[in-house]
Simulated assay, not measured.
Amino acid sequence: MNVLWLIMICVSIVFAIFTGNLEAFTKSIFEGAKSAVEISLYLLGIVSVWLGITRILEDSGLIYRIAHLFRPIISRLFKNIPGDHPSITAITLNVLANLFGLGNAATPLGIKAMQELDALNQDKGTITPEMMTFIVINTASIQLIPFSVIGILASYEHHNPAVVVLPVLIATAISAMTALLILALFRRIFR
Results as ranks from 00 to 15, higher is better:
Q143H: 04
H68K: 14
L109Q: 07
N104Y: 08
F78Q: 09
I73R: 06
Q122A: 08
D59E: 13
A162D: 00
N94K: 05
I135N: 04
I29C: 02
A97K: 02
A36Y: 00
L41S: 00
T172H: 07
L166A: 13
V11E: 02
G52L: 09
T128K: 04
I9L: 13
F134N: 07
L166H: 07
A173G: 10
A162G: 10
N98V: 11
L183K: 12
T89S: 10
A105R: 05
I53V: 15
T19I: 00
L117F: 07
L43W: 06
P146K: 12
L99E: 09
T92A: 14
P129Y: 01
L180Y: 08
F70Q: 07
L96I: 15
F186Y: 05
D123E: 08
P72I: 10
A176D: 08
L93H: 03
L51N: 11
N121D: 05
T92K: 10
V3R: 08
S60E: 06
D84T: 10
V14W: 12
I189R: 03
N2G: 06
A171R: 14
H159C: 09
S148F: 05
A173V: 11
L41G: 00
T19Q: 04
I189W: 03
L57V: 02
P146R: 12
A173Q: 02
P161D: 08
D59R: 15
L109N: 01
I17E: 05
L43R: 01
L44E: 03
V149I: 12
L62I: 13
G103A: 11
S141R: 04
I81M: 09
G125M: 03
A90V: 09
P86F: 05
G151P: 11
G32Y: 00
D84A: 12
I66W: 14
A176N: 15
S48A: 14
V47M: 09
L185G: 10
R187V: 00
D59S: 15
S148H: 07
I145R: 05
K124Q: 13
L96M: 15
T128A: 01
L109I: 04
L166C: 09
K79G: 05
I13F: 07
P161R: 13
P161F: 03
L183D: 11
K112A: 11
N80L: 02
F30M: 04
D118E: 14
R71N: 13
W50Y: 09
L99W: 14
F100C: 12
R71D: 10
L166G: 05
N104A: 08
N160A: 15
L69Q: 08
F25P: 12
I63F: 14
I127S: 08
A173T: 14
G101E: 10
N2F: 06
S75W: 09
N21M: 08
N21W: 04
I111T: 06
I88M: 12
I111V: 13
S148C: 07
L57T: 07
V163T: 13
I142E: 11
I66F: 15
I53M: 12
L109H: 01
Q115M: 06
Y156C: 11
L44W: 08
F78N: 08
F30L: 13
D59G: 06
F186L: 14
I81Y: 02
I152N: 05
I189G: 01
H68L: 06
